[in-house]
């Protein structure tokens, strides 16, 4: 009975259900998108009814919410934070800046494509996305989790060399440990 395919399926369903309905988010709010998080969490749009809840430390968080542009300087911190989170973990890229650079696409100091450096599960388009769009993004993430497709953390582990090469290309002075797990 144990460890066969059928019982694993049941466990998967239960664990995906639990993961889906309890998302602790860690908002990396350096960009302007951070201003959209308070209305999403508070009484008007109330993300807590989906089981979404803020978390103060990366150790407890499930979702890393990257709100807006990332300078190379802050990418360093984001990588650190992402690697400190415990599996399974998801990344939501928030706003046009994370998708293709947005209005900062030709800035000397901001990255353009986030998913070359971190595995992004869901992108939310817009500059800035309204709270409705943010909640739609969360619902999309929940769907992916239920289908077992939100496996960015697994992809990151499998392609760690590629990701690290991309990261080290722009962070020239890599003074932190190679992995911050």
């Amino acid at each position: 009975m144990y460890n066969d395919k059928e019982s694993q399926k049941i466990v998967d369903i239960i664990q995906n259900y639990a993961r889906k309905h309890s998302l602790f988010i860690l908002a990396y709010g350096t960009g302007c998108g951070a201003i959209e998080i308070p209305p999403t969490m508070t009484s008007r749009y109330d993300a807590e009814r989906f089981g979404i809840r803020g978390s103060a430390t990366p150790r407890q968080a499930d979702v890393l919410l990257i709100t807006g542009y990332l300078a190379t300087k802050s990418l360093k911190r984001v990588i650190k934070v992402y690697e400190q989170m415990q599996d399974p973990k998801y990344v939501i890229g928030f706003g046009s800046c994370t998708i293709n650079g947005g209005m900062y696409w030709d800035s000397y100091n901001t990255i353009n494509v986030l998913d070359k450096y971190l595995p992004v599960d869901v992108y939310i388009n817009g500059c800035m996305p309204r709270p409705e769009a943010v909640i739609a993004g969360f619902v999309k993430l929940q769907k992916l989790i239920q289908q077992g497709k939100a496996d960015g953390w697994d992809i990151y582990k499998k392609n760690i060399d590629e990701y690290k090469a991309n990261q080290k290309k722009i962070i020239t002075n890599w003074v932190m440990p190679d992995f911050n797990f």
């Binding site: 259900y17 639990a18 309890s22 508070t42 009484s43 009814r49 089981g51 150790r59 415990q86 797990f181």
Partner: peptide, 25 residues
């Protein structure tokens, strides 16, 4: 706070999800 709020069994889901999380610390 004039919100809908999570379901009352939300804490069970939280505990269950945390049990399914891996730990590498």
């Amino acid at each position: 706070q004039n919100r809908v709020g999570p379901p009352v069994w939300q804490n069970f889901l939280d505990v269950l999800k945390l049990l399914f999380k891996k730990t590498s610390v």
